[in-house]
């Protein structure tokens, strides 16, 4: 138990923070109910996928500045393909868009490995490229989404045998998020590949000398990031029903949540659970501030302050630990 606490201390702390925030929300707004929780889950969905995309790359010791642009591109692609098409056509669109994200992510990794240009610069250049591509696909917000796909993330999951009162607290969006992340992350984490991703993030040289195919692993890490970003893009299209070519604030949010989630920016440390919980914390803080009727601009200041304070605190703890 002690060992578990020490390893997962940060995530446990985040969970505690999340619960405190939920209680605070109930106090501020006693009417905060399952419907509001459902809309929170829907709002979190694209952020959570953006954060997952960033997490994989950061664990592998890199950074991906193109996450938000990738989401914009996949979102407009999905929206413009589904616009006016039949409902069944969406069955083809979803895998296509996911494959596109995977391939573009792999391209990111390939460029980093082949050109030996620092990852920050390659993904910065890709940010422009993907943004441009998104504008070519759709130059203004538009497109559409299949009804059954939109229904996939709205409403709740009816579980037989459970009273409706409990059902109501299980929004479909949350379930979609958990399922999508788990079917990719858990097998990955337990596989040799997952271990390699942690290894190259921890020490590239040591990983190389222990026989880890560093280049291949890096490419795959970026490809997975692209895949998660494509999930995020789809989530955007599904929740709004259209695609917008201008990237949202997902880059900054993803980096913030990754750090808040206890993933070291140097790489090799942390997991996916922490950052995902961190996204919920950040979104819930925003909800609370809105409920308190605070000026949304002040909300931005408070969010920034929280982020900086948390990061400083985290860095301070690590420094203490090292001494």
């Amino acid at each position: 138990m002690n060992h578990f606490l020490r390893r997962q201390g940060w995530v446990v702390g985040l969970f505690a923070l999340l619960i405190v925030l939920f209680i605070a929300t109930r106090i501020i707004q006693p009417a905060y109910g399952s419907n509001d929780f459902g809309s929170l889950a829907r709002a979190v969905l694209p952020y959570a996928f953006a954060v997952a995309a960033q997490t994989v790359v950061v664990i592998a010791g890199g950074i991906d500045l193109s996450v938000a642009a990738m989401m914009a591109l996949t979102s407009v692609t999905a929206a413009s393909m589904m616009a006016g098409a039949s409902e069944e056509y969406a069955l083809f669109v979803v895998p296509f868009v996911l494959a596109m994200g995977f391939a573009l992510g792999a391209l990111n990794g390939l460029l980093i490995v082949v050109t030996r240009v620092p990852d920050i610069v390659v993904t910065l250049a890709m940010l422009f490229v993907l943004q441009g591509a998104a504008l070519l696909v759709l130059d203004a917000p538009g497109g559409g989404a299949a009804e059954w796909l939109k229904a996939l993330i709205s409403g709740t999951v009816p579980i037989p045998g459970l009273p409706d009162a409990i059902d109501a607290w299980l929004p479909k969006a949350l379930l979609v998020l958990i399922v999508c992340l788990c079917i990719i992350w858990i097998p990955l984490r337990r596989s040799r590949l997952g271990l390699s991703i942690y290894a190259i993030g921890s020490s590239e040289l040591a990983a190389f000398r222990s026989g880890v195919p560093v280049k291949r692993t890096r490419i795959i890490a970026y490809a997975l990031s692209g895949l998660f970003a494509a999930f995020g893009g789809l989530a955007l299209t599904l929740s709004t029903g259209i695609g917008a070519p201008i990237p949202g604030p997902y880059l900054l949010a993803s980096v913030a949540a990754v750090v808040l989630g206890g993933v070291a920016l140097g790489g090799g440390k942390g997991g996916l659970l922490g950052p995902i919980v961190a996204v919920f914390v950040l979104r819930l803080v925003r909800t609370d501030l809105t409920l308190l009727a605070i000026d949304p601009n002040v909300t931005a200041i408070i969010e920034g302050l929280i982020m900086v304070a948390v990061v400083m605190f985290g860095a301070f703890i690590t420094m203490r630990g090292r001494q």
């Binding site: 422009f128 441009g132 591509a133 504008l135 070519l136």
Partner: peptide
């Protein structure tokens, strides 16, 4: 079009750096 310009800008920055 604006999109193609951004694509070219990104590619050229990458190519020049490499």
């Amino acid at each position: 079009p604006e999109g193609a310009r951004r694509i070219l800008f990104g590619l050229i920055v990458l190519f020049v750096t490499a």
